[in-house]
Amino acid sequence: QKPIVRVFLPNKQRTVVPARCGVTVRDSLKKALMMRGLIPECCAVYRIQDGEKKPIGWDTDISWLTGEELHVEVLE
Rank of each mutant, 00 (worst) to 15 (best):
Q1D: 15
Q1S: 05
Q1N: 15
Q1W: 03
K2D: 13
K2E: 01
K2T: 03
P3N: 15
P3C: 11
P3F: 13
P3Y: 14
P3S: 15
I4H: 02
I4R: 02
I4S: 05
I4Y: 06
V5W: 01
V5C: 10
V5Q: 00
V5K: 01
R6F: 03
V7F: 14
V7E: 00
V7T: 01
V7S: 00
V7I: 10
F8C: 13
F8R: 08
F8T: 12
L9Q: 00
L9R: 00
P10R: 01
P10H: 01
P10Q: 01
N11Y: 07
N11D: 11
N11M: 07
N11F: 03
N11I: 01
N11K: 05
N11A: 07
K12A: 13
K12C: 06
Q13M: 10
R14C: 10
T15Q: 02
T15A: 03
T15S: 05
T15V: 04
T15E: 04
T15F: 09
V16R: 03
V16C: 09
V16M: 10
V17M: 04
V17N: 01
P18E: 15
A19L: 05
A19P: 04
R20L: 12
R20W: 04
R20E: 11
C21F: 06
C21A: 15
C21D: 14
C21L: 15
G22Y: 04
G22K: 03
G22P: 01
V23R: 11
V23F: 08
T24Q: 09
T24F: 02
V25W: 01
V25A: 05
D27C: 10
D27G: 08
S28V: 02
S28M: 03
S28T: 07
S28W: 00
L29I: 12
L29M: 07
L29D: 00
K30C: 04
K30F: 05
K30H: 10
K31L: 02
K31N: 03
A32D: 09
A32G: 08
A32P: 13
A32F: 04
L33C: 14
L33M: 12
L33W: 02
M34E: 14
M34S: 14
M34T: 15
M34C: 07
M34N: 13
M34Q: 13
M34Y: 08
M35K: 15
M35Q: 13
R36C: 05
R36T: 09
G37E: 15
L38V: 07
L38M: 13
L38D: 03
L38E: 08
I39A: 14
I39C: 03
P40N: 10
P40W: 14
P40D: 15
P40H: 11
C43D: 01
C43R: 00
C43E: 01
V45H: 00
V45Q: 00
V45I: 14
V45T: 10
Y46F: 15
Y46T: 10
Y46W: 13
Y46G: 04
Y46E: 02
R47W: 07
I48Q: 13
Q49K: 08
Q49G: 10
Q49M: 11
Q49F: 11
D50C: 07
G51D: 13
G51W: 06
G51V: 07
E52W: 04
E52I: 09
K53R: 09
K53S: 08
K53C: 09
K54P: 01
K54H: 08
K54Y: 07
K54S: 12
P55K: 14
I56W: 02
G57M: 07
G57A: 10
G57C: 14
G57R: 10
W58H: 02
W58L: 08
W58A: 03
W58K: 02
W58N: 02
W58M: 08
D59S: 08
D59N: 07
D59I: 08
T60W: 02
T60C: 05
T60Q: 07
D61K: 05
D61N: 09
I62H: 01
S63Q: 07
W64A: 13
L65P: 02
L65Q: 13
L65A: 10
L65H: 13
T66I: 09
T66D: 13
T66S: 10
T66C: 09
T66M: 07
T66P: 10
G67H: 06
G67Q: 07
G67S: 07
E68L: 09
E69C: 07
E69Y: 07
E69F: 03
E69R: 05
L70F: 12
L70R: 00
H71A: 09
H71T: 09
V72D: 00
E73T: 03
E73M: 07
V74I: 08
V74C: 14
L75G: 14
L75V: 13
L75D: 15
E76G: 12
E76T: 12
E76M: 03
